[in-house]
Amino acid sequence: MAEEPTQGERELSTLLPPKDRWWERLGPDERRWLTIAFVWCLVLFSGMYVWLAVGDQQTPVESYRIDPFVFQQEVDAFVEEHQVDEIQGAAVVEPPPGSEVYLHANQFAFRPVLKLQKDETYRLLVSSTDVQHGLSLQPTNLNFQVLPGYLYVIEITPDEVGEFPIICNEFCGLGHHVMTGLIVVD
């Protein structure tokens, strides 16, 4: 059985207390790497601000509290005013270019179906009247969280023509995997 070595003759190990103070002067290897790593961290950090200045794709930050009941009424009024068609039982609306557009997430559908025009900017007003949902716009793959009681304003500018399905990617109940919606751009 080994004798417990005394402090003085102890080897240095990650499993044993360090000798004396634990701080040691940085060697050149560490100093170099630390500099490189810190510069990279600053690049990552300022990258977000740079993209704010130069990028076209920004995280939406405009949002309001809204009573789910009020939201429901506003959605109904919006659909009534702009409905142009119906597919598979879902109202299709064609709001004027550049306008405010409601999108209602509810177990288990995103409604109404939106008809938008290419290269026009719309203000999507998104909320839920029951539980949380995930708005996932396919296939361009933009994703947002939808909370009941909060109105999230997402400005989008469709830049291609076609049909763009929406799926729900936040678990919202047993119908989560069939929750869809649709945006048509022409």
Binding site: P165, F171, H177
Partner: peptide, 15 residues
Amino acid sequence: PRRVPELGYEAAPLG
């Protein structure tokens, strides 16, 4: 998406 048992969206309304 995450947290879905299957990707059978073609069967959903507006699939």
